[in-house]
Computed example of a mutant assay.
Amino acid sequence: MAANIRSATPADVGAIFALMHELAEFEKLTHLFVATEDAVHDALFGARSSSEALVAEADGRIVGYALFFHNYSTFLGRRGLYLEDLYVQPTQRGSGLGTCMLRRLAALAVERQCGRFEWSVLDWNQPAIDFYEKLGATVLPDWRIVRVTDEALERLAAPDNAS
């Protein structure tokens, strides 16, 4: 099997979107999946794009993707690279595509002088945790993701809530 990792192009958005939905199914989170193909295109290639992506191809088709963006560490005083999604279709797992994408992103983080490269992993996804640790990543036990969405976000943003 010939494999290739490359930067995503606008023509790849449909395939990336389909893989995003597969990821939501794998994580049992389809009830939270409300993204649209247009929103993904805008995030990656719109006038105010906020994200970038790599795609993994095998035998002429896209079988994986990595979606990432920059964040900033006030403690380091440098930007970082944040991996939002890394997904490889089940039939391609173990082929090295995930490792290749992570290595490419690590090289990009070094090239862009990022202070760190980080991402989140679900606590039940032990195969992913083992994979990341094998590559030298540390799963931080003392940090939790804090999130405000939907109506709670609207309430928090409302001017009458200002204190």
Results as ranks from 00 to 15, higher is better:
His70Lys: 06
Phe75Val: 11
Gly80Val: 02
Leu97Lys: 03
Asn71His: 15
Arg93Trp: 12
Gly77Pro: 12
Glu84Met: 06
Leu76Lys: 07
Leu81Ser: 01
Leu86Gly: 03
Gly80Thr: 13
Tyr82Glu: 03
His70Met: 05
Thr91Asn: 05
Tyr72Gly: 01
Phe75Lys: 08
Thr99Pro: 08
Leu81Arg: 05
Cys100His: 15
Gly98Ser: 06
Glu84His: 11
Gly77Ile: 12
Arg93Cys: 06
Glu84Arg: 12
Glu84Gln: 14
Phe68His: 05
Tyr72Asp: 02
Tyr72Val: 01
Glu84Asp: 13
Arg103Lys: 15
Pro90Trp: 01
Phe68Asn: 07
Cys100Ile: 13
Thr74Ser: 15
Leu102Glu: 11
Asn71Ser: 15
Ser73Met: 07
Tyr82Leu: 03
Glu84Phe: 07
Phe75Ala: 10
Ser73Tyr: 03
Val88Tyr: 04
Gly77Arg: 12
Leu81Asn: 09
Tyr82Pro: 00
Glu84Trp: 00
Arg103Ile: 08
Arg103Ala: 14
Arg104Cys: 08
Leu67Gln: 10
Phe69Arg: 12
Gly96Thr: 10
Gln92Tyr: 01
Gly80Ser: 14
Asn71Glu: 14
Phe75Gln: 10
Thr99Ile: 11
Asn71Asp: 15
Thr99Val: 14
Phe69Ala: 13
Thr99Ala: 14
Leu76Thr: 08
Leu67Pro: 02
Cys100Pro: 08
Thr74Leu: 13
Leu102Trp: 03
Tyr87Ala: 03
Gly98Lys: 04
Leu86Met: 12
Gly98Glu: 00
Gln92Phe: 01
Asn71Leu: 13
Gly80Ile: 06
Gln89Asp: 13
His70Trp: 02
Gly80Leu: 04
Phe75Cys: 08
Cys100Ser: 15
Leu86Gln: 11
Tyr82Trp: 06
Ser95Cys: 06
Gln89Leu: 14
Gln92Asn: 00
Ser95Asn: 08
Leu97Pro: 04
Gly77Lys: 10
Pro90Met: 00
Asp85Ala: 11
Cys100Ala: 15
Phe69Glu: 10
Gln92Asp: 09
Ala66Phe: 02
Leu97Tyr: 02
Leu97Gln: 01
Arg104Tyr: 07
Ser73Gly: 09
Gln92Met: 12
His70Cys: 07
Thr91Phe: 00
Asn71Pro: 14
Leu97Trp: 10
